[in-house]
């Protein structure tokens, strides 16, 4: 197998005295989608935060294109090519839709993804570009959050629970953009509660339970039942 784009090796981390991850390893291949599943508290969001340096990690625990990046500061990762769509969207409420995208474009990498291209992908955002970002509906806000990740022209996007709190029909809209995103050469790690959806979407899967990897491999190797069992730690 080719050298992975992003790999996590034996990563342990947590909040203060509380350890939430115990020696987690995973590999994301170039141009691939990796599904990350697990129950609440399994450590998925913690893993994302540790990869991004919002929680403690050591230099060799995270590698990107074969280089250790565990000591790179959070704010430098977007220019390196790693961004996140955070849980709860976390749009900047003092900024308009367009400004949210502009900011991310200015502080990210230059490339084919621009705010205008995002407005093509999600036309509704173009119509509302001057509105305060937090005045939009939940689904539209999620589109802004995804757009904000895209305009940095990353190699990797970490999607954290992008369907959380959205109506099922809206979730379909949001996920409809995923193949297009992947087709433009962006790899992704997707955290999603809907195990079946993520199994169909992803190329490979990692299941976490209580801060440890309990299952990992190509997505087509697993049945829904297997995954569900691993999800619940059985």
């Amino acid at each position: 197998m080719a050298e992975p784009l992003l790999s996590v090796k034996d990563l342990s981390s947590g909040y203060g005295d509380f350890q939430a991850l115990f020696g987690v390893s995973l590999e994301l291949q170039e141009n691939a989608i990796l599904g990350l599943v697990g129950a609440n508290g399994a450590g998925k969001s913690t893993l994302f935060k540790a990869i991004l340096g919002l929680l403690p990690r050591a230099r060799d625990m995270v590698n990107f294109r074969g280089k250790p990046i565990g000591n790179v500061k959070t704010e430098d990762l977007s220019r390196l090519g790693i961004v996140m769509v955070p849980e709860g969207r976390k749009l900047f409420r003092s900024l308009s839709v367009e400004e949210n995208l502009q900011l991310a474009a200015e502080y990210g990498r230059k490339g084919e993804w621009t705010p205008d291209r995002v407005f093509e992908l999600f036309p509704i955002l173009g119509q509302r570009r001057r509105q305060a970002a937090t005045s939009l509906s939940g689904g539209q806000q999620q589109m802004v959050a995804i757009g904000r990740a895209l305009v940095a022209n990353p190699d990797v996007i970490l999607f954290d629970e992008i369907s959380l709190g959205l109506a099922p029909i809206v979730v379909n809209d949001v996920y409809a953009a995923m193949p297009q995103i992947n087709a433009s050469g962006i790899s992704a790690i997707v955290v999603e509660q809907d195990v079946d959806r993520v199994r169909k979407l992803s190329h490979s899967l990692v299941c976490l339970n209580e801060g440890r990897v309990v299952l990992s491999g190509p997505s087509q190797d697993f049945t829904k039942a297997q995954l569900t069992a691993a999800y619940f730690g059985e």
């Binding site: 919002l54 955070p86 900047f92 003092s94 900024l95 900011l103 991310a104 502080y107 940095a152």
Partner: peptide, 14 residues
């Protein structure tokens, strides 16, 4: 403004 709203997310954005 972004940093004032949410410093952590501002960092993620770069």
């Amino acid at each position: 403004r972004a940093t004032s709203d949410d410093p952590e997310t501002a960092q993620i954005v770069g």
